[in-house]
Write a protein that binds this DNA or RNA. Structure first.
Length: 650
RNA sequence: GCCUCCGUAGUUCAGUCCGGUUAGAAUGACUGCCUCGUAAGCAGUAGGUCGGGAGUUCAAAUCUCCUCGGAGGCUCCA
């Protein structure tokens, strides 16, 4: 029999009979590896373990510990879920069941709707079936054969037609007596799967193939980890994350509220939330001033004609609040600031010397977002945008774009964000009707932006077909503590505004030039979303400069109230946000309450402090510093705020 | 907008499945006592048309329908 040489990841070479499967090799290397094996990477390509190897190859066994292996494990459980559902409700139409970040899901069309109360029943059935399963057996089928497996299931038929294009063979995988159309990627044996390593979590509606034009299916979500220990750890982490939820903390810390009488997606900022908002806004004003921006403010309403001119009507109309008809025409609430800024650009004759012109505003916009998408402060209908538009020539794009990226990185550094990456959204040249027809502009500006990202050495990925219709953009993606990914900041290049608004300037030779590029940017997102991120990122423990109450002074008893008031006056004079708690409660009680309010500096004053002109300081990390000289304290606090430090050190 | 789930004092929750005394608790608020040294002193008082509306019933927080609001998904997006 012919032998083949297999090179393993550690560089060692083993000889096997030609036609051996990767799964057999895994068992040959070690029993444990054989059990944990999920997939094989042969010469860099992910393959099924049952694939026969017929020539000299490099082989890496992928186990449940690897990303691909974990996916295989989760996907195997998706098969099990479908099997359980099909046993319980045989006339259900099954569709697809991929692995996802912490588990998997499977989409079904049930003939009678199920409810979340059915999940334990399904879970029980899965555990009943599990011991009857072992290896996944691969088989091939033609489209006609495959369709027979799914009578009346138009979803599977659609997939079969698609996958069998060009006469390709379809593959089925079977374990126990459950078989499903599948391209592979499973655990080598279900015997290695622990019955308590997964949990069905919730139901959700999901459109077939992600399009709202298609029927809506019932999606069953599950979490799954190789061991119960890991599953429990994950569930615990989710519980912890819930404690940081900005909706919960926003209420507990009196930052914002909502009212049915006002309407959904319309938060009401309370004094403490407003303080944070104002601090962030002041920071932005300061930063933008240094960066050469000019600040404006524009009305929240405008006539319909403005938004027709900008093209937002009808293109963006369904995301705008409906028109208000008055005696002199129809008005709309603005959903964006750009049209106004373009008018500002146009309000006088511009020269090349004016460029780049940077116009900024914290503009209050209103967008009629679908009610189902609203969520706390993360998705709202009232948006306080940290907006600005940069009007520049093509040869200035690189510098301006780069400066905005630097500004964003600096902002994030100040706020202490680390969990983010840049996403460059490009046009799709094969889908041209979606985009403004300026192929050369698309290609050249995308190249400029890509270069800027590389030059700034930031982590970024590229996505084709995600650009706005008027130009490429860069979004900065951020992961919330609950694991959801959201866009935080955005920079967009626009080469349609110049046409819509006839933007132009006089060139050096006094010729009219219409090549005005607009950069839209919102580094600090909207106040609403940004503060939602901050609350969760800091778990409500804001840095001193942002804290709504920076200092609370607790008097040990009535006798020391006067001293407490005196130092409070001193703090207030220095523009600090300080208050006195002189209630005749125990010190423990007052400390507890101040801690719950996450006040960064809790000062206690009694006999010793009054006599020595000192304070006892309790910092947010629960450390107590006794006998701190008042002047020292004040100096350190002022410096900390000035430098926008994240932590307080005394 | 669509799917699943949820809505009871300011807040967190019990009671809802299986309709039946004046709807409970904790915490917060208020009043009084306590004058207190670093995460909860003691006592009392007020606070709820059970999100809103309609229906079924002798009787509805509880069952049905509509509606408003919220959560998680889908689609969309800062």
């Amino acid at each position: 029999m012919t032998k083949i040489k297999i090179t393993l990841p550690d560089g060692s070479i083993k000889e096997y009979a030609k036609g051996i499967t990767a799964g057999e090799i895994a068992f040959d290397i070690g029993r444990r590896l054989g059990q944990d094996a999920v997939l094989a990477k042969i010469n860099g390509n992910i393959k099924d373990l049952s694939i026969q190897i017929k020539e000299d190859s490099a082989l890496q066994i992928i186990t449940i510990q690897d990303k691909e292996g974990l996916d295989g494990f989760r996907h195997s459980l998706a098969h099990l879920l479908a099997a359980a559902v099909m046993e319980l409700w045989p006339d259900t139409k099954r569709t697809i069941g991929p692995p996802i970040e912490n588990g998997f899901y499977y989409d079904f069309e049930f003939s009678n709707p199920i409810s979340e109360d059915d999940l334990p029943k399904i879970e029980k059935k899965m555990r009943e079936i599990l011991p009857k399963w072992d290896k996944f057996e691969r088989s091939e089928a033609t489209a006609a054969e495959a369709k027979k497996e799914y009578p009346n299931n138009q979803f599977k038929h659609e997939l079969i037609d698609e996958f069998s294009k060009d006469g390709k063979k379809l593959t089925f995988y079977k374990s126990g007596n459950y078989s499903d159309l599948c391209r592979g990627g499973h655990v080598s044996s279900m015997k290695s799967v622990q019955p308590d390593s997964f949990k069905l979590t919730h139901l959700a509606g999901a459109y077939w193939r992600g399009s709202e034009k298609n029927p809506q299916l019932t999606r069953i979500y599950a979490v799954a980890f190789p061991t119960k220990k890991e599953l429990d750890a994950y569930l615990k982490m989710v519980e912890e994350a819930k404690k940081r939820d900005h909706k919960k903390l926003g209420r507990e810390l009196d930052l914002y509220t909502t009212s049915e009488l006002v309407g959904k997606g319309l938060p009401i900022w309370l004094p403490k939330g407003e303080t944070i908002k104002r601090e962030i806004e002041n920071f932005a004003i300061e930063t933008e001033k240094k960066a050469g921006y000019q600040r404006v403010s524009t009305p929240v309403l405008a006539k319909k004609e403005l938004f027709i001119k900008s093209g937002h009507i009808p293109y963006f109309q369904e995301s705008m609040f409906p028109e208000m008809v008055l005696d002199d025409g129809a008005y709309y609430l603005k959903a964006m600031n750009c049209p106004y800024h373009h008018l500002i650009f146009n309000h006088k004759t511009r020269s090349y010397r004016d460029l780049p012109l940077r116009i900024s505003e914290y503009g209050l916009c209103h967008r009629f977002e679908l009610s189902g998408t609203l969520s706390g402060l993360l998705r709202v209908r009232m948006l306080s945008m940290n907006d600005a538009h940069i009007y520049c020539k093509k040869d200035q794009i690189e510098k301006e774009f780069g400066d905005v990226i630097k500004m964003i990185v600096d902002y994030y550094k100040t706020f202490g964000f680390e969990n983010y990456y840049f996403r460059l959204s490009l046009w799709d040249p094969n889908n041209r009707e979606k985009y403004i027809n300026e192929p050369e502009n698309w290609e050249s500006t995308q190249e400029i932006i890509r270069g800027v990202l590389k030059k700034n050495n930031v982590k970024f990925e590229e996505v084709m077909g995600e650009a706005a219709f008027y130009g490429p953009k860069v979004d900065i993606q951020f992961k919330t503590v609950t694991g959801r990914e959201e866009s935080m900041s955005t920079i967009q290049l626009d080469f349609i505004a110049k046409k819509k608004f006839g933007l132009k300037y006089a060139d050096k030779d006094n010729k009219e030039n219409n090549e005005v590029y607009v950069i839209h940017r919102a580094p600090l997102s909207t106040h609403e979303r940004f503060i939602a991120f901050l609350i969760e990122e800091y778990a409500g423990k804001f840095p001193l400069w942002l804290s709504p109450v920076q200092i609370r002074i607790l008097s040990v008893s009535d006798k020391f109230e006067k001293y407490a008031r005196k130092i409070n006056e001193e703090f207030l004079k220095n523009n600090l946000r300080s208050e006195v708690d002189s209630r005749t409660e125990s010190i423990s009680y007052k400390v507890r309450e101040a801690q719950a309010q996450k006040i960064p500096l809790i000062l206690t004053v009694g006999e010793k402090e009054e006599k020595n002109g000192t304070v006892a300081v309790r910092t947010i990390d629960n450390k107590i510093h006794f006998g701190v000289k008042l002047d020292d304290f004040l100096g350190k606090v002022m410096k900390n705020i000035e430098e926008k430090k994240i932590k307080v050190e005394l």
